[in-house]
């Protein structure tokens, strides 16, 4: 039981990060009918953006009075640059192929992935970079379960981001246009929704969330590497498929489920196997329930 609760808490923490990344996959699929396989790399680059922001903001972060502001700025910086990166990728790698056969954007996605990995490797080097915790660690104990203030920070800011996303998609004018486009592209164009603009916004939001996930990932594991985007991206993609690709609440639930399964697997079986579970699940869903738990393609249903 102790192991169970502890691994549940740890799994939920990393699940939050997977959920943030999964949202980008699912939104882009729902609105542009495109699997952005470079999305994991945006997450990874986001972590490096965070590291870069840290190097600039070190004075701010090390003074106790402004540490919170410093963490906030690291997130803001990483999210903004990741958002721009996502928009640029869409503009130059996917938009020209909007009417091409579906295989074409998949191939450019692989190209973009390699490009980003190699740029990061050249700039920051191939070995692991240590990532600062950014906040002074405090450990809490509740019964037999221990957790840190960092885990609370990750969970709270993820939930905040997801609620903001929900409110945005539900109530804003652009959010309605996103759902309209997911529902019926021609009809959306006929009321004056500009497909390119809305797809850009979708990449912007999805990439900003991935960037936030990247910073959290770095803070949580304290080390980042240029190939971290591959595994995390694939797990988040699995989460999106598990929840039903295109389905926003599905991606959130899928992310948490993958995180928890991975946590429990690491606790009960072996942590060396933890990366296998996600793919085992991916194969199972694709075989038995390809539309996912909540049903596919429903950005419309928020």
């Amino acid at each position: 039981m102790d192991v169970f609760l502890q691994q549940l808490v740890n799994g939920l923490t990393i699940g939050m990060i997977y959920a943030l990344i999964a949202l980008g996959y699912t939104m882009v699929y729902g609105i542009a009918q495109l699997i952005n396989f470079a999305h994991g790399e945006v997450f990874m680059v986001g972590a490096y953006f965070g590291l870069f922001a840290y190097s600039i903001l070190t004075p701010l972060l090390s003074s106790p009075g402004s540490a919170t502001l410093g963490v906030f700025l690291v997130f803001l910086f990483a999210m903004t640059l990741s958002a721009l990166l996502g928009v640029v990728i869409e503009r130059f790698a996917y938009r020209p192929l909007r009417h091409a056969p579906r295989l074409a954007p998949l191939i450019t996605a692989i190209g973009v992935s390699f490009l980003l990995q190699n740029i990061i490797m050249l700039v920051f080097g191939p070995s692991d970079k240590s990532f600062p915790s950014l906040i002074e660690s405090v450990t809490y104990t509740a019964g037999s379960v221990t957790f840190t203030n960092l885990q609370i920070l990750i969970a709270a800011s993820s939930v905040l981001l997801m609620i903001s996303l929900h409110v945005f998609i539900r109530h804003s004018r652009t959010g309605k246009a996103m759902r309209a486009l997911a529902d019926d592209r021609d009809a959306a164009n006929l009321v004056g929704v500009n497909t390119n603009r809305i797809i850009s916004v979708t990449f912007l939001i999805g990439s900003a969330l991935a960037g936030a996930g990247g910073v959290m990932f770095g803070m949580y594991y304290n080390t980042i590497n240029f190939h971290d985007g591959y595994l995390a991206g694939l797990k988040a993609f699995t989460a999106a498929v598990l929840g039903g690709i295109g389905n926003i609440p599905g991606a959130m639930i899928g992310g948490l489920l993958i995180g928890v399964l991975e946590g429990l697997g690491a606790g009960y079986l072996s942590s060396e196997w933890k990366n296998v579970f996600a793919f085992f699940i991916l194969i199972l869903i694709l075989l038995f329930r390809p539309s996912g738990l909540l049903g596919a393609r429903v950005v419309k249903k928020v």
Partner: peptide
């Protein structure tokens, strides 16, 4: 827009 409400459909008309 079948997954949106009637109200949202009207709102989108005035997009």
């Amino acid at each position: 827009f079948s997954h949106l409400t009637v109200q949202e459909n009207l709102d989108l008309g005035a997009y």
